[in-house]
Write a protein that binds this DNA or RNA. Structure first.
Lengths: 195, 195
DNA sequence: GCTACGATGTGTACAGCGCTCACATTAGGC
DNA sequence: GCCTAATGTGAGCGCTGTACACATCGTAGC
């Protein structure tokens, strides 16, 4: 808006579309993210985004990729290199917190099937997977790393979605954090005793 | 189709819509389940379903409720009253198997937010929750039942979605079963040692 | 400094969607 | 046998994604 919004050529419509999409997702938590709405918000004709995104899916994938980056940052912020159960729990809480703070974005990231064609998204998935493995190897030394990191990711991811979908009450942030914490601790007890 | 498809009044359009919806979901795993498509499949005008469902959401909720019933049956079939880790693992595998066998239905069941208004769906959720608690109390005696049943459900649910969304490879059914099995076992090790 | 071209944005159009409303048809109680 | 309420039809509105022809403009080559 600030810079020459009235020119025929926008300047950086791609970025503007992504920004508009993010705003729409944040404003209406259950938005369907229509391409036309994005175009309107960007102050541009309905078909202009097609110069920058092959179709709606491409836009959505780009938004999802951004989301992965932000999720990663949040987890890192929760704890840069978790190595204890408490650290892990903090990261888990941050993961669920992110899902509840950005429900529409989180859905976009995980609900729309990960097209093997979208290299961006595959890379992002691999990054998360690697990140989790690293945590698990430090926090659960001696345990089977592959099975356990799968289990940990699934546990946290499942917690996020069950809260997000209203299967677990998410109205009280503290209660959610406590619940996630408890679940992770319950899970950990095992392998720390097993080694 | 078999019975008097050419009459003005259908006879049992509600059931026919549900059946049509299920067929569409099974045929196109990534279907969006349009009301009009359901009507077409049921051999009826586009607006006829509105006599039996308030809106698209109501139809979807009804389909989801059916799905909950079938999921419950499958879990029961996997093991009627699981009490060991192996039993629990078998149930977990059945859960993930159901998700992968009926991806579109599973998405309908869990992705669309659970409107507190839909008593059917809330009841179904509560039923699953209770079922899981029962299992956990038998399989993990002495552990904190609430935290653990949350953890177990989240673990299994997360495994289902990570496979469904392509975050974990789901191409080989045996490999999936093994992975789920391993995750549940990893999880169990803990609390059985803790007590 | 002009010109031609490629990149970018516009406008129109089409089919499909959810949903509303006026109307047609029919089943079942009196 | 009629009347009413339930059920199905059809036209129509505004939304969607997307294809297409056209308009505008930055810039590279002369």
């Amino acid at each position: 808006m600030s810079k020459a919004a009235d020119r025929y050529h926008h300047g950086d419509l791609r970025a503007a579309c992504l920004r508009a999409a993010r705003e729409l997702l944040e404003e209406d938590g259950s938005a369907a993210l229509s391409l036309r709405a994005v175009a309107r918000r960007a102050g541009v004709s309905a078909t202009a985004p097609y110069r920058h995104f092959a179709d709606r899916d491409a836009l959505v994938s780009a938004v999802a990729a951004e989301g992965y980056g932000e999720l990663g940052a949040k987890l890192n912020e929760a704890h840069p290199e978790p190595s204890t159960t408490e650290d892990l729990a903090a990261v888990a809480v941050a993961y669920v917190r992110f899902a509840l703070d950005h429900p529409a974005l989180f859905r976009v990231m995980f609900v729309e099937p990960c097209d093997p064609g979208s290299a961006e998204r595959v890379a992002a998935t691999a990054a998360i997977s690697g990140y989790v493995s690293g945590i698990v190897e430090r926090a659960f030394p001696g345990a089977e790393p592959e099975a356990l990191s799968t289990a940990v990711w699934a546990l946290v991811h499942g917690l996020a979605f069950l809260h997000l979908d209203g299967k677990l009450d998410a109205s009280d942030a503290d209660a959610v954090a406590t619940r996630v914490h408890a679940a992770v601790r319950a899970m950990h007890t095992a392998s720390s005793l097993a080694e």
